[in-house]
Design a binder for these strands. Sequence first.
DNA 1: TTTT
DNA 2: TTTT
Lengths: 134, 134, 134, 134
Amino acid sequence: MNYNKVVLVGRLTRDPEVKQTINGTIVATFTIAVNRSNKRGNDEVDFIRIVTFSRLAEFVQNYLTKGRLVLVEGKLRINRWQTSDGQNRTTPEIWADQVTFMDKKDDVPIVPEAENEIEYDELFDNNDNDEPPF
Amino acid sequence: MNYNKVVLVGRLTRDPEVKQTINGTIVATFTIAVNRSNKRGNDEVDFIRIVTFSRLAEFVQNYLTKGRLVLVEGKLRINRWQTSDGQNRTTPEIWADQVTFMDKKDDVPIVPEAENEIEYDELFDNNDNDEPPF
Amino acid sequence: MNYNKVVLVGRLTRDPEVKQTINGTIVATFTIAVNRSNKRGNDEVDFIRIVTFSRLAEFVQNYLTKGRLVLVEGKLRINRWQTSDGQNRTTPEIWADQVTFMDKKDDVPIVPEAENEIEYDELFDNNDNDEPPF
Amino acid sequence: MNYNKVVLVGRLTRDPEVKQTINGTIVATFTIAVNRSNKRGNDEVDFIRIVTFSRLAEFVQNYLTKGRLVLVEGKLRINRWQTSDGQNRTTPEIWADQVTFMDKKDDVPIVPEAENEIEYDELFDNNDNDEPPF
DNA sequence: TTTT
DNA sequence: TTTT
């Protein structure tokens, strides 16, 4: 009974950083600048940290660079942690499950999100009446 | 450079229908009534057809019933097809990749959507400075 | 207890059409082609009809043209109607409440969506302790 | 060319707090707990701060209470501020433009979001051919 | 009926 | 064809 979805379009503030977890999973992180569309200028920005894993992280590593415009879909996480002197801190970040280019540069592969890989027209026998395909 | 996302909350108008594709994939479909929140009454409704596959379809088959309130996330598809006498028709439907209960009945399992199954706290060595965990 | 949200990114298949309602409200409609990102080519498309009103319709009329890439946010409506010989038909369309360019051409005004027009920094007295601004 | 949208479903951790800005605008804030749907238990939660203004804030003040399940739609803001001793801090929050109940208690008014208030059926002259209403 |  |  819970739901958490974020969709953002913005530009990379730097090239992504890539690390590996202790069990070998690749993790790519980057920050996007999302301008707040206010009428008189564009001085307000949110800098939002994006985290990607595995196959999506490899895509990010290989193709995303500073300045590119991307659409990011994922979940908002509010990470809670402590400083060395025991103060509580909070870091927001998006765990992305989809990243799509919104600008064209060189040709770049589409990153297939995790989903049903079924071909629609192969699904059913033809029907020959006035009903929709399902 | 394309994106397609739909999020709906509404009630099942009937129990789901379950079929199988010619290669054995299970397909469960149902319609939800999504009321348009107009101020003076609630007479306007959109009846929206939802299609689910595989594991999600099994979940739908096992737990969704007429009248239940669900959140559905997926993609809008406008299917084009022809009647037997050659007329063009169009059927909108949502190919869901997530279905979540919004009402409580008996206890029911969470359906895990396809996603990164990584445990956050196992990811990295502890850091002992004033930096966030990544 | 209902919710209906659609977010799409796609290209205009033609220039918008503009009409007026019987009481003078301007209505601009257009269709966007939203490609389904399948791996081996890009042959599958959804053609989705978008409807805008009033101030947003004027923006659409003035700045949107065939081929432009836009992000559209709105509600899915399944309109039910009858043909002249009494057959039931159904037409899906998106009633947009936000349209944003995703490609750059000439400079074009931002269309302010209906929202809270409050300036953040004018909101409160300065606080001079360790608390966030609210 | 920027976009920022968040949709969350979760429960209020406390009753909302209500303040006023220096120019009289009412501001209601509250925190929702959004559980991460992990398979083996439900120990992980994100506590996400929600900010509402004006009419929506009044609705929040009058009807939302601790424990209620709500759907919140809005924009993610990463507020940057400084502590009294000059340290930089960051506070994430959602500026909501829609809040909807997801549980039923007593009957409660629908809060109309800012949008086009046009009645569909009053829009056009009747058409009596095989075309959809627009 | 369709966009790149 | 329709849910609360």
